[in-house]
């Protein structure tokens, strides 16, 4: 993982490489952070603007929410790094089970 500590005392650690990696990581985080704030503003505008009906605004902000969750997981919680395959697998399985539950409750239960 790129965010490992540099105090290992191992002479083979390539500090230049690490520094470059970390800088790159930082750039992604800042870009993502800016994007997330922008998306939040968009969501507020979508709800506040009179011209959009609820049938457009609700699915739209749900999509934005999903994008935000993905940013959060991949850029801030480092799921894009190596070694996160098992957590990712279980995360997606959980999302899948939750999704079909909600889907079923919205479609096959009569009221």
């Amino acid at each position: 993982m790129t965010n490992e500590q540099l105090n290992s005392g191992n002479p083979k650690v390539d500090i230049e490489y690490r520094r470059k990696k970390n800088a790159e990581e930082m750039r992604y985080q800042i870009i993502t952070f800016a994007l997330m704030i922008f998306l939040t503003l968009v969501a507020f505008v979508a709800v506040g603007y009179e011209g959009f009906s609820a049938s457009f605004a609700v699915p739209f902000i749900l999509v934005l929410a999903f994008v935000q969750v993905a940013f959060q997981l991949y850029y801030f919680m480092h799921m894009s790094h190596k070694g996160h395959e098992a957590p990712a697998l279980f995360l997606y399985s959980g999302v899948f089970v939750g999704f079909i539950t909600v889907l079923a409750f919205m479609t096959v239960i009569w009221w």
Binding site: V97, T101, A104, F105, I109, W110, W111
Partner: peptide
């Protein structure tokens, strides 16, 4: 409420 909700939760 809805009694069917229990059945779904139980069988899920």
């Amino acid at each position: 409420g809805n009694t069917i909700i229990w059945e779904h939760f139980f069988w899920i």
